[in-house]
Design a protein around this nucleic acid. Structure first.
Lengths: 419, 419
DNA sequence: ATTAATTAAATCAAATTGAATTAATAATAA
DNA sequence: TTATTATTAATTCAATTTGATTTAATTAAT
């Protein structure tokens, strides 16, 4: 209660600034802080959570009790450690909540339901052919319902639905899916239809979020995820947050110019990075023009065969990617950079190995390449996995907004928050 | 009271996570929210602040009264607008607080005291020659004392001291100042010595902060500040925060490679952006090898004379900078990019004009170049001005930390916060 | 006896709620 | 036109509520 924003429209509309906070939101923040501590460390006793959050023991006792009662936490057996009363360790309950991820391209929709730990419960798919947004809406809603029905998961325990699309949605819509998607308010429309929070992220951001929640990224607050798909994009995970940019178009590293006199790109420039480092570029290099023949498996076969055309592509891709990595490290000073996407892991691995030696930079002197460039999660259903991690991330994410009243409005319903 | 962090060292040191919050910090957040609203709009009535912050009228009444009582706010004459009781508008009191900025290179230290609105009260300078850190410490402390004594400003009303240095301090120290500065804990040492919070920022970040507080940047939450100095760096102002990167080395755009077969750079690569766009590059282009003859004024004269060598540099610099801007826009999707630094405004203006037409990009289709690339504040004493804005920014800055207990410890003393 | 983990009860700070106050304009009736 | 009443907006006062902290007590180990 008490989160209605008073009418601002009467006098001149004040430009959005920073909202104030109140007790209710402070508590929500603290609940998230507890969960964050648990996610970072796996299992903690109340006393350890107290130290991790710098809250008082009593407060933690109350918050933990509440979270346990809500089913988000489960207690383990008391551990008799040194002296004193043996402490019960607490874990996040993987079945404490669920999430749905949807991945769409122009011929297939893939939807999966995962639990809080990112473990898949069920995956379903549906063939489509360039659906209109309204048709897509129907299909998504149907698939969500189907997932919930088949798994018998209570929709009240579902944090939301994440949709992963290639490229910046706000500006170009889901690239290549079909006409009419640009500016279609899919989050709002689908959200209303199914009564769950819906969030769209591009594939690179979704992958970065999945990496953060369930992969190696758990250890890092600031990293980049270079996503090699049909094009090339990066998820920018900075200080614990995905950085989207003003129009949601941040991370378009595919159009960094790495070869001023290089290959012509659709964007009108020459030598864009994604003209060298992308599935598209690979298919072109091996002379595969027919779309139906193109597949990541085909590429993997060529790698195994050491096909000259393919190896030529790989060598050139690595050379250009090295420049891109160098630019990103200089600009972002990240802890690590993940490389992943739609390529088979074997090819990504080969590509990453060929990045050595890196171009010299301030950072490259401090840490060897192997510690700075890591292989990201990359599997056939990685985008759907990434999409599914999106609602979980935002449910437990602590951002500036989380102490402001705006957040309470943004998601239609939340599991945390006043119950 | 009640902000002491309990001892974490007893059991294994938990890795830093998110801290919890309490009433005290919530109030501090709200005080900042009020100030933020006022800074954005210039003057607001209590009722308008209520709408801007989404807090209750009563809360705003209390907070405004407290801030007024502390001297940070001043009330104007009641305005009879339409109906109802005439409302008093409130302003930030420019004399409600002060700040000190220090700029240092290898031969000169420049220190200035400004009020909260960024208006200079006094500037002093001192010649030096490659001082050791300990000597620098003495000099800084002396200059701070001198500023306070001469202006008769109560040190209790000073938010802190900002120090602007070229390049990433944590990694390379203040470039070219002298030996021994790398890793010297100047913030802590000087802070202890003078009893004021001290913060070091590189010149690009300081300029970005000044732009945000006192310049056109007031209107933008997400922008970049490209700082043309002896080298080239960028201040990354993202979602209301300066992004520093993991080691404080973010924004090193000078080493983006814009010409793979281009000029050799100290860093070991070829074609780094700052080999074309920087004062250094300009001096080299005009054949001025003697350091004592080099000056921005000299360059301005050459521009006026349309000196062929200089104009050649300018043309090439613009061409390379265009590529850099294109990369930055693709990566960050910012609202605007400011260009500024140590070049005379006239030259910067000429450079910016020569960036038209821009390279095509997603963003370049949405907005004309003139609205995306702006001239940043750039004056001889701009770095010191930028430095002085740093403590003001952090005093009133609302970050995630501001609702956590860590922040209360980071600054030795704060004007906001429990009094 | 000491130490650590936890719980219980009382206290405290700050935001919210609801009612009241003040001061203006707008609408209406004389 | 003028006096009266209604409406609206800005603000304050008093009581309430929420949630973190403090202090003290309890439990279970060394």
């Amino acid at each position: 209660m008490a989160t209605e924003i008073s009418d601002m429209s009467r006098s001149e509309p004040l430009k959005a600034g920073v909202f104030g906070t109140n007790l209710e939101q402070a508590k929500e923040h603290n609940l998230r802080a507890v969960i964050d501590a648990l996610r970072r460390h796996g299992a903690l006793t109340r006393a350890e959570i107290t130290r991790a959050t710098a809250l008082s023991v009593q407060t933690i006792s109350n918050l933990v009790a509440e979270l346990e009662q809500r089913g988000l936490l489960i207690a383990g057996e008391p551990q008799k450690a040194k002296r004193g009363q043996p402490a019960k360790p607490y874990f996040l309950n993987p079945e404490g909540g669920y999430s749905i991820g949807i991945q769409m391209d122009h011929q297939l929709v893939l939807a999966k339901l995962v639990n809080m730990a990112g473990v898949e419960c069920l995956e379903i798919q549906k063939s489509i052919s360039r659906p209109s947004p309204e048709e897509g809406l129907e299909i998504f809603a149907e698939m969500v319902e189907q997932l919930l029905a088949k798994t018998r998961v209570d929709s009240g325990k579902v944090f939301g639905v994440g949709i992963a699309i290639p490229g910046p949605y706000g500006i170009s819509g889901p690239t290549g899916v079909g006409p009419g998607w640009v500016d279609f308010p899919i989050e709002q429309r689908l959200g209303e239809k199914i009564g769950l929070p819906v969030r769209v992220e591009n594939d690179a951001n979704a992958a970065a979020i999945a990496e953060r929640l369930h992969g190696e990224g758990k250890k890092f607050d600031t990293f980049l995820y270079v996503f090699i798909g049909m094009g090339l994009g990066a998820g920018l995970f900075l200080n614990g947050q995905i950085y989207h940019g003003v129009r949601g178009a941040a991370g378009e590293i595919g159009h960094i110019i790495v070869e001023p006199e290089g290959r012509l790109c659709d964007c009108g420039n020459r030598g864009c990075l994604e003209r060298y480092v992308s599935l598209c570029a690979a298919y072109e290099a091996i002379g595969e023009t027919q779309e139906k023949h193109r597949s990541p498996e085909q590429l993997e076969k060529l790698l195994d065969q050491k096909d000259p055309a393919f190896m030529g592509w790989l060598t050139e891709a690595a050379e250009k990617l090295r420049r891109g990595i160098h630019a990103l490290e200089s600009i972002f000073d990240p802890e690590v950079i993940f490389i992943g996407g739609l390529l088979p892991p074997k090819i990504t691995r080969a590509l990453v190995d060929m990045l050595i030696p890196p171009l010299p930079s301030v950072v490259s002197q401090l840490k060897p390449q192997e510690e700075r460039i890591l292989l990201g999660i990359s599997a056939p259903s990685a985008p759907a996995q990434g999409a599914a991690s999106v609602p979980i991330f935002y449910e437990f994410n602590i951002e500036r907004q989380s102490v402001s009243q705006a957040a309470s409005q943004s998601l239609s319903r939340k599991v945390l928050g006043s119950s």
